[in-house]
Simulated assay, not measured.
Amino acid sequence: MSKYLLNKFLFTVDRDPELVERYREQPRETVTWWEAQEANRLLNCVTAEASTWLAFDDTEREALATHDYPALFDLGAHPFLTLTLFIALFERDHDMPLGFQLEYASRLADRTLPYPDIST
């Protein structure tokens, strides 16, 4: 399991409006593509340097592919990164202000302290 890679996915997808839409419409395909093409690319690196060892495990891959943000939370994905990306994905599906944020809070309401460690 790599909390770093989960957070990197959330961070990079959230910052690209085209990727947000792609992830909304084709989540499994986007996760597969991102893992193959982007996972090992270094953040903020001007050159074409890349690592070779980063990959999601099956649990992470499935949580991302099914938009399962409670599972991502349980895996230690950073809650702010998760919330901001999923607001971009699903806020438009709610009629009331803060509709998605209220759903997010409701779906995570059964979690108790201590929360999963979010350090990477």
Rank of each mutant, 00 (worst) to 15 (best):
D117R: 10
L98S: 02
A109H: 10
T30F: 12
P27Y: 05
E21G: 06
D95F: 06
E29D: 15
A71L: 13
G99I: 07
N44T: 10
T12F: 12
W34S: 01
R107V: 04
A77G: 14
V31A: 06
W34Y: 04
A39D: 09
E91H: 00
H67P: 03
T30C: 15
L113Y: 13
W33H: 07
Q37I: 02
V46L: 06
A88I: 00
T120S: 07
P17L: 13
L42Y: 12
E62H: 11
A48P: 00
Y104R: 06
Y4S: 11
G99V: 03
L64I: 06
P114G: 02
L43I: 10
D110I: 05
Y23S: 11
W33G: 00
A109P: 02
F9N: 01
V13H: 02
A50R: 15
P97M: 14
R28W: 10
R92V: 10
R111Y: 15
E25Q: 12
D110M: 06
D95V: 10
P79W: 14
L43P: 07
V20D: 06
F73L: 09
L81E: 03
S106L: 13
K8H: 05
A109N: 12
R41V: 12
A48F: 08
L54D: 01
E18M: 11
A109F: 14
E35I: 05
Y4I: 10
F90L: 05
M1H: 14
Y4T: 08
F11C: 00
H78G: 04
L108T: 13
T30D: 15
L113G: 01
F56P: 02
R22G: 11
R24N: 13
T30K: 08
L98N: 06
D117Y: 06
E21Y: 04
C45A: 07
T32C: 10
R92I: 05
A63G: 10
E91K: 01
R92P: 02
A88M: 02
T82P: 07
L98M: 04
V31K: 00
W53D: 11
Q26N: 15
T84I: 08
P79Y: 13
I118L: 04
Y69R: 13
L43C: 05
F90K: 02
V46R: 08
L5H: 01
M1F: 09
H67V: 03
G99S: 07
T59V: 15
A55K: 04
A36E: 15
Q37T: 07
R111S: 09
F100I: 09
L81F: 15
A50I: 03
Y23L: 14
D74M: 00
D95P: 02
K3P: 14
A105F: 09
D117K: 10
E91T: 01
A48R: 08
T52P: 01
T32K: 13
W33Y: 11
E49P: 00
G76W: 03
L108M: 13
A36S: 13
W33R: 03
